[in-house]
Design a protein around this nucleic acid. Sequence first.
DNA 1: TTGAAAGCGCTAACAT
DNA 2: ATGTTAGCGCTTTCAA
Lengths: 342, 342
Amino acid sequence: MAQRKARKGQTGPAVTLTDVAREARVSRITVSRVIRRQGPIAAETLKRVEAAIRKIGYVPNRVAGSLASAGSDLVGVILPSLGNIVFPDVLNGIHDSVAPHGYRAMVSVTEYSLEAEYQAVSALLSWRPAAVMVTGLEHKKETIKLLRNCGVPVVELMDIAGEPIDIAVGMSHQRVGEETAQRLLGAGYRRIGLVGHDLVRDLRASKRRESFLNALDEAGHALAGEVIVPGASSVAAGRTGLSQLLKLHPKIEAVYFLNDDMAIGGVFHCMNQGVRLPDQLAIIGFNGLDIGQALPQPLTTVLTRRREIGALAGQCVLDRLSGREVPSITDVGFDFIKGATA
Amino acid sequence: MAQRKARKGQTGPAVTLTDVAREARVSRITVSRVIRRQGPIAAETLKRVEAAIRKIGYVPNRVAGSLASAGSDLVGVILPSLGNIVFPDVLNGIHDSVAPHGYRAMVSVTEYSLEAEYQAVSALLSWRPAAVMVTGLEHKKETIKLLRNCGVPVVELMDIAGEPIDIAVGMSHQRVGEETAQRLLGAGYRRIGLVGHDLVRDLRASKRRESFLNALDEAGHALAGEVIVPGASSVAAGRTGLSQLLKLHPKIEAVYFLNDDMAIGGVFHCMNQGVRLPDQLAIIGFNGLDIGQALPQPLTTVLTRRREIGALAGQCVLDRLSGREVPSITDVGFDFIKGATA
DNA sequence: TTGAAAGCGCTAACAT
DNA sequence: ATGTTAGCGCTTTCAA
């Protein structure tokens, strides 16, 4: 991991503050002040120092700076996946809110493994970030311990139904499941099926399913059929999922897809088989992806404010770092999109 | 940016190596060796140190470690956008290849601005990363200067048609445009249109367009019509783009969409308007997104190996850091997918 | 197998 | 407005 030497030895010993100071005929601390635009500097000195920096091509060393000042501009973000536009959307929101204030995101991906999450949190904390964001409220005991003791703001993203470690920004997946069931029942559908994916790993999808089933149950109805496709959710998975479901339970009237990727696949299956939506079959999804709304028949689904979750999470961190009070739970809510498929 | 103090002052002064050393009754350097699993350690000592670490909840400080060893495990990755699954795919490939070797990605997003790219590169280099990855071969002069002098491996992602700063991993967008034109002409289409987006910012899309037009030209044909939608590409943009194009030039036989997002929107437009694909109109896209292949009629398009670009970029970095030779250009190529829309 | 001494490059705190 | 001094927490010699 030694990396001082260059590709072809073009780079000599690293250029440091000291070199700039020598070149500009000032002390090192003066250069430091110029770089950080902090404290009073004479216009004349400023010019000399900046010229020196440019002349010798100095790039400040934040590793040293952070060590000296016991602070960094890093915001650690740990996401379950990047294979679905949902989390990039959140990341985008985070980036847009914190980057203007000089913070940068350091991203790790867990592929929905809580063990990988623990590893990522450890590694991240060793960089002494200014804040940490993780996804969801479920973590390993060890992870929670690390996060509780790390001394910086911790945001849990996406979900709010539980006890946050510090700050939670998201929505209640329980309520989504519940209300989705109520919508379908309210619209008169009775023979209702469900297509889902890897529930062991995607814990929030699992919460939606649970509360959906409970709500059906409480209304005196049982699920007419269910297909859980193995692995990650995808359009293709939704297509085959629905195909299987209809084969097993041909009389189903409506299907809840645990997310839009799969729901869109379901819509494609129907197009292909000439199943008319929503007359012959109703489809409802979750997320409100753009593409679902651009379908010939826009998808009926639940709009989640993903970018907003990221942006608010960033704002919470900024507020907390400025000493302001931050609510421990921020519910961004969700909205039903009355599309044309249910 | 001071962050030593905790939310409610629960955290005392940071736990350091020294604390572990005291607890385990060894010297600090011994603890350091245990943490890095480097150098010889007696089994007995190892056990004591690890127990001490766990007991007092020590989290190593890589900021200090990196400063002392002049090396970090950070790989800086600068991407134009996360709003499209293409770049998350690349990032995924990078992550999967470097993470097992202990490197972590530090991501910045530029929204296709070369000035933002310059800022991101500066900020990144100040963290003394082990390697840097940027997107494309076009950069500001200042950015190139920084990257040339930074002394660590630099990978330019996605494009290979040009002079790399150090290492380029990608494909020739020129050839994509050319061959796309040849395909359409070879299939007998003559009245050919194009739907594109923000060409000033997405320079690779612009290259595809240029070479597409050139190839038509060389074959003695002119573009029958073109719509450049403002802003970012999206499914919705492709839908309206095609709608406009057909209004202006109703007799068009085939349309080249500069990427799949827009092409899928085009397909949706046709579904909606009852335009039969590919008889009445042919559509060809670019990227080979999963969703395009899950459409009732799979999209005819060009498969790009995005994940592979990321994975190979990571491998190049690993190789270079181990002192192995690395080719300055790696062409991952591309493949036509013969779908059902052209 | 373990340790002591000497920094890495920067900034906080206190002069001047 | 600028400088001096003393570290930040770790790793790299070199020595035992």
